[in-house]
C-alpha cells in the first residue's frame, strides 16, 4: 500500500511542479508550488519516516517562505499581463536544455553501483525522531548551527536595509509623503 502511495505522491508532486512553471498567473504558480511542497512533505512524513523534517518543511516553506512570495506578488499587483510570453523557439530551447540535463543526470544515476549505497537494513530506531536529530544537531553540528543563526541575523538586517524606502531628496514628479520614523 505504501509503495503505491509513494508512486501516487511522486506523480502528484511532479504534476504540480510542472504546473508551477506552466501557470500564467504568478499567484497560481505560488499555490502550485505550495502543493508541490506538500507532496514533498508527504514523502518525508509517510514514506521516509522523517516526520520532523516533514512538519518543519511545511512550517518553513508553506507557512513562511511561500507566504512571503504571495505577499510580494499581491502587494506589487503582478498579474498575468505583466509577463510577455517568450517566443516558441525560446521555449523549445529551454525545454530541450532541461531535457538534456535530465538525460545526463539519469544516465549518471544508472551508472552508479547502487548495491554499495543502498541495502542498509532498518535498525529499528527511528532516525527521523526529534531525539536522534536533536542529539546530532546539538553535538556534532553545533558550529554550523551557530553560523546559521548568524546568517539569519545578517539576512534580516540585509533585507530590512534593502527593502526600506530611502529618504531621497525630492525630484520633480515625485510624490512626497511624510515618512514618520517611530
Amino acid at each position: 500500500m505504501l509503495t503505491s502511495a509513494f508512486y501516487f505522491i511522486a506523480f502528484v508532486t511532479v504534476f504540480f511542479a510542472v504546473m508551477v512553471i506552466a501557470a500564467k498567473n504568478p499567484v497560481h504558480s505560488v499555490l502550485y508550488l505550495v502543493l508541490t511542497f506538500f507532496g514533498i512533505s508527504a514523502n518525508y512524513i509517510f514514506i521516509l519516516d522523517a516526520p520532523f523534517v516533514g512538519i518543519v518543511n511545511i512550517i518553513v516553506y508553506a507557512g513562511a517562505i511561500m507566504v512571503l512570495f504571495l505577499f510580494v506578488i499581491m502587494l506589487m499587483n503582478l498579474n498575468a499581463e505583466a509577463e510577455h510570453r517568450k517566443s516558441n523557439a525560446f521555449l523549445i530551447v529551454g525545454a530541450f536544455a532541461g531535457g538534456s540535463l535530465l538525460l545526463i543526470v539519469v544516465d549518471a544515476i544508472r551508472k552508479v553501483d547502487w548495491k554499495s549505497v543502498s541495502g542498509q537494513e532498518s535498525s529499528g530506531g527511528a532516525i527521523g525522531s526529534i531525539k536522534v536529530l536533536g542529539k546530532v544537531l546539538y553535538t556534532d553540528y553545533i558550529l554550523p548551527f551557530e553560523v546559521a543563526s548568524v546568517l539569519f541575523l545578517v539576512a534580516i538586517v540585509g533585507a530590512v536595509i534593502l527593502a526600506r524606502k530611502e529618504k531621497l531628496p525630492l525630484t520633480v514628479g515625485q510624490i512626497s509623503h511624510p515618512v514618520s520614523e517611530s
Binding site: L31, V34, I58, I59, S129
Partner: peptide, 22 residues
C-alpha cells in the same frame, strides 16, 4: 498521539493563513 504534536499544530495554523490570503 504524534511525537511532535505542537509542531503539527503550528504547521496546520500556518496553512490556515492561505485560506484568508487566497
Amino acid at each position: 498521539d504524534i511525537e511532535i504534536g505542537i509542531l503539527y499544530v503550528f504547521a496546520v495554523v500556518s496553512v490556515g493563513i492561505y485560506g484568508i490570503m487566497i
